[in-house]
């Protein structure tokens, strides 16, 4: 989560408009993919980003999106840097971000403690009917970030943004 610190809140408002290409309800800030925004020397805007998964195919695209957004809003001196220095985990998703996932029909990830075990993926709350009478189908989904589940209450398949 980005610490607003002393940066001009206008920049954060602008960046809030950059959404995840796969889940357009969530911003990259709320997803936690933007890890830091600060003003460097000579008023340069510096944005640090980190991939959700190492193999995330959308990372370059997201970086360009951030650059374009800054440019469109009149910033000419900026640097967007991608690194694993502050590795992403689902714990970086903000509360607003979790709501946005749900709006998109995705079960938000539970807060992750140290150990990932099968039970963290079992009985995930169904995003449609809130039931936890659900079953894990596979820890992998159509994109790297998701796992697939089935709800026995409303008989619908759903996906979870899986904890990492």
């Amino acid at each position: 989560m980005v610490d607003p610190g002393t940066i001009d809140p206008k920049i954060l408002d602008i960046l809030q408009e950059v959404k995840d290409p796969e889940i357009p309800t969530i911003s990259l800030l709320d997803l936690g993919v933007i890890t830091e925004v600060r003003i460097g020397e000579n008023e340069q805007v510096r944005v640090e980003m980190t991939p959700t998964f190492v193999g995330c195919p959308a990372m370059d695209y997201m970086k360009r999106d951030v650059e374009n957004k800054l440019e469109q809003n009149g910033y000419s001196d900026f640097e967007v840097n991608v690194s694993l220095e502050k590795p992403w985990t689902t714990n970086n998703i903000t509360e607003r971000g979790k709501k946005a996932l749900k709006e998109h029909g995705l079960a938000p990830p539970p807060h992750l403690e140290k150990i990932v075990d099968i039970d963290i993926l079992e009985n995930v709350k169904c995003p449609y009917c809130e039931s936890d009478n659900t079953e894990l189908q596979t820890p992998f989904g159509p994109t790297l970030c998701r796992s697939m589940h089935f709800c026995h209450s409303c008989k619908q398949a759903f996906e979870q943004f899986k904890p990492l």
């Binding site: 998964f53 190492v54 193999g55 995330c56 195919p57 189908q137 596979t138 820890p139 992998f140 989904g141 159509p142 994109t143 790297l144 697939m148």
Partner: peptide
């Protein structure tokens, strides 16, 4: 499910 799992893991590995 297995189709998706192997494809997803493959994408991770290549990454």
């Amino acid at each position: 499910e297995e189709d998706i799992s192997f494809s997803s893991m493959a994408q991770d590995k290549i990454g």
